[in-house]
Design a protein around this nucleic acid. Structure first.
Length: 790
DNA sequence: AATCCGGTTCTTTTT
DNA sequence: GAACCGGATT
């Protein structure tokens, strides 16, 4: 069918109306939004409005479908509709909007035909929230906007039985996984120095990422001493996981692929369902994830991937930058859109980022730009020691606060976690409120893991790993030897350990341990019963009681136990809020959600504290002021990366990610010597610093290392590589002495009164009640620079 | 079963 | 320097 003249006329005016809807987007963004059919690669630079593009692209698909590009008119459209739209374009009255939108919708898409896959819960949450705001709760919740793992679990939940697992399957995290591997290494009597569980885990993970089954792995590694054994371990691991009815994070993806590949009907179902597939952070996908997305998008081939090859920083976790670099080969006639306009940072920061990343060979090539010029120079500061580096950061923050910034406008980023120590010490000394942004801190506490172990065992009787964790916690007189015997029986009979424990009295080998085991099993079964009768939160309370866990902590009564009790109660509030949020709360759904949850997900953005985190953790975040500390060769880039170009490029990308977190001010700090791994090391400023155009820097040192710069911090030399910070005379300033009752003025905390003074190692620990900011503890010497008596 | 000691190791870690 | 693990000790 040829488009008629009317069609063409109508089509043009429709485009204009649609363009108006997305008028806040730039041309490149619109290109991505309107390209709905076929494979699309969006190369989205840092801060280029990637999430907005994803959202608006979904909105466009929902409202207009192919409307933008279709040369045809909507069926049953007449001349009067054309006039109506023309009129609406001239004068868009809100009351005409609904009809105008309806006329423009050539082939609107149902929300359940769209899947948008992200990596983090946070990103998925943000998508969901913004979609809800834009298209309403009903439509938004029908869209699958989830992480890879949540998507896969939704698929598995329906059909995992086809793979021979029961639907009450358990999810093992990295620690659980390590436990299983360690036990296996021991069982095989292998040397765990050579067969390091962490290494084995990694090998198995990589194999799974690449969809290599234990069988293929064994064939590939036949005759190899080390890898041959790894193959054996892989096979045993797989067997063990099946026996426990458990999946690890890799399995969640892998088993989904297997399910889809082996069951044409299921594949067909999802390929029909997902007419539009969107994938975020594509540069961080591994091979399995690539295969998964290809399978899901296999029906309509409408796959849109968004990513930035320059921000690929998870190679060590199996991400292959190849996926994004070769998208155009993998998907013929793929359309490519580059988003290079940055809405986040000053052009100083962007030029630094561009200068840096230009040194990478293996990339698609992008230059970030902004139409807002200006911005203060990047401050490069070299200190003599890590303590003074931290002091410098403290000073800058306090000065910033004095000028009116809030604590949460600052972030301190570092390459590895140890670097946070010096900064933390300095922060504590000056009572700077801070928080460390870290993954699963809460969930890795022993007491929390215990609670989850109980819950998983109640849900999944085959979960032997968790059963072993809690069978004797609190102490129930079930010794290690009894458990071992019971495990042997279980292995012989081919039943889960719990089954043996439940019928312990039928095995004479168990001797005196049998009674205690029976009691334990009865308790668990009682709890299973109870679970069906009361709400989840009530059940949790009862569980704390019935298991005696709470009591045993209360009986100890030390500080440690009290904090454990607090954590256990904290978990209760997690349960309560889950119950409020879920439509049909269930134990299995709760456990599943929690297995994929991290502490970072509940981070409160309005929390008024300085944030400390690794550069990796900072990806996707932004802050007005950013400090990058430990900018030294050997630290960043790390000494491991100095040898090989590929690793060095990954480190450079990490640096690029870190730099582009800053919106207004960027500080780069390094120290001449640093205490690391028990010895003081001397280091040159990071080579990355030299890659930043010099005119963007305001520095107290030269980024170019001089031959002897580490032994002679030559003050007043021709080209001093390091100068002592002016003003603060290397910490030797005479400490102003304070006494209780003194009134003081602090530059960041305002007026206050010293309420107590304690002598501490030639210094004083002051407690000061500030009129505005409450009571703080400060060390007198360091505080003196920001505070005066009055 | 709990605690102490000594040897070892030391990127990063969205789920 | 610190944290973690395993073995020995009580």
């Amino acid at each position: 069918m040829e488009p008629t003249k009317f069609d063409i006329q109508f089509s043009a005016i429709r485009r204009a109306v649609i363009e108006r809807v997305f008028s806040r987007m730039n041309d490149r963004q619109k290109e991505a939004i309107f390209c709905t059919e076929g494979p699309l690669l969006v190369l989205a630079g840092a801060g280029s409005g990637k999430t907005s593009v994803l959202i608006h692209r979904i909105i466009n698909i929902l409202r207009f479908g192919k409307g933008y590009d279709s040369p045809y008119a909507t069926p049953n459209t007449g001349m009067e509709d054309l006039a109506f739209l023309a009129n609406y374009l001239e004068d868009p009255k809100p009351e005409h909007e609904a009809r105008a939108m309806q006329l423009c919708a050539v082939e609107p898409v149902k929300p359940w035909n769209i899947v948008a896959i992200t990596f983090t819960n946070k990103a998925a949450q943000e998508l969901q929230n913004r979609l809800t705001n834009a298209v309403g709760e009903a439509d938004a919740s029908a869209i699958w906007a989830h992480t890879f793992h949540t998507c896969c679990l939704r698929i598995l939940r329906r059909d995992i039985e086809r793979l021979g697992y029961s639907s009450t399957f358990t999810i093992y995290d990295e620690d659980d996984k390590k436990r299983v591997i360690t036990d296996l290494v021991r069982k095989l009597r292998l040397d765990d120095k050579i067969f390091e569980p962490r290494k084995i885990m990694n090998e198995i993970s990589r194999a799974k990422d690449n969809l290599i089954t234990p069988r293929t792995f064994a064939v590939d590694q036949r005759g190899e001493f080390y890898m041959g054994r790894v193959a054996e371990l892989y096979a045993l691991y797989e067997k063990e996981m099946r026996a426990n009815n458990a999946l690890d994070f890799d399995d969640i993806i892998l088993k989904t692929i297997q399910l889809l590949r082996e069951n044409a009907d299921i594949l067909e179902h999802y390929q029909q369902k997902f007419r539009y597939v969107l994938v975020d952070e594509y540069q961080d996908t591994n091979h399995a994830q690539y295969v998964l997305t290809a399978l899901l998008a296999g029906g309509y081939k409408n796959i849109c991937v968004v990513g930035d090859d320059d921000q690929s920083i998870y190679k060590f976790r199996g991400a292959t930058i190849t996926n994004i670099l070769e998208f155009e080969q993998q998907y013929e006639n793929a359309h490519v859109v580059r988003l290079e306009q940055n809405y986040r940072s000053t052009d100083t920061i962007l030029n630094a980022a561009n200068g840096l990343i230009r040194n990478n060979q293996n990339r698609k090539g992008k230059e970030l730009w902004t139409d807002r010029t200006g911005g203060s120079k990047i401050r490069l500061h070299r200190s003599d020691t890590q303590e003074n580096e931290a002091e410098y950061i403290v000073r800058q923050i306090l000065e910033g606060v004095e000028r009116g910034r809030k604590w949460n406008e600052f972030a301190v980023l570092y390459r590895n976690n140890v670097l946070s120590n010096a900064v933390e010490t300095a922060f504590r000394r000056q009572s700077i409120p801070y928080r460390i942004y870290k993954g699963r801190d809460f969930f890795s506490r022993a007491e929390i893991r215990d609670m989850f172990a109980y819950l998983w065992v109640i849900e999944n009787p085959s979960d032997t790993l968790r059963l072993k964790r809690i069978i004797n916690v609190p102490a129930r007189k079930i010794g290690a030897r009894s458990i071992e015997i019971a495990e042997e029986i279980a292995a012989q009979e081919g039943v889960p350990l719990f089954e043996v424990v439940r019928r312990a009295d039928t095995y004479s080998e168990l001797g005196r341990g049998a009674a205690a085991m029976m009691r334990f099993a009865q308790m668990i079964e009682e709890l299973r019963e109870l679970r069906t009768e009361v709400s989840l939160s009530e059940f949790y309370e009862d569980m704390l009681d019935v298991t005696g866990y709470q009591e045993s902590l209360e009986n100890k009564g030390d500080t440690e136990s009290r904090s454990r009790l607090e954590n256990i109660m904290e978990l209760k509030s997690n349960i309560v809020s889950y119950e409020e949020q879920s439509e049909a709360p269930s134990l299995s759904e709760f456990l599943e959600e929690m297995a994929l949850y991290t502490d970072a997900d509940k981070q409160d953005e309005n929390d008024e504290t300085v944030l400390l985190m690794t550069m990796h953790a900072a990806k996707g975040l932004e802050f007005p002021v950013v400090f990058l500390c430990g900018m030294e060769d050997g630290v960043f880039p790390g000494f491991r990366a100095e040898e090989n170009d590929e690793d060095l490029e990954e480190e450079r990308r990490l640096c690029y990610v870190a730099v582009t977190r800053a919106k207004q001010e960027l500080y780069l700090t390094c120290a001449e010597r640093r205490l690391m791994y028990g010895q003081t090391r001397y280091a040159h400023p990071s080579r990355f610093l030299r890659e930043i155009p010099e005119e963007l820097l305001d520095s107290n040192c030269s980024a170019t290392p001089r031959m002897n710069d580490m032994d002679t911090p030559s003050v007043g030399g021709v080209n001093p590589s390091y100068r002592k910070p002016s003003g603060l005379a290397g910490g030797t300033a005479p400490a102003a002495l304070f006494a209780a009752g003194d009134c003081v003025v602090h530059r960041a905390f305002g007026e206050g009164m010293v309420t107590s003074v304690k002598a501490m190692g030639g210094d004083q620990l002051l407690e000061i009640a500030f009129t505005q900011k409450g009571t703080k503890r400060l060390m007198a010497k360091s505080a003196a620079q920001f505070m005066q008596k009055r």
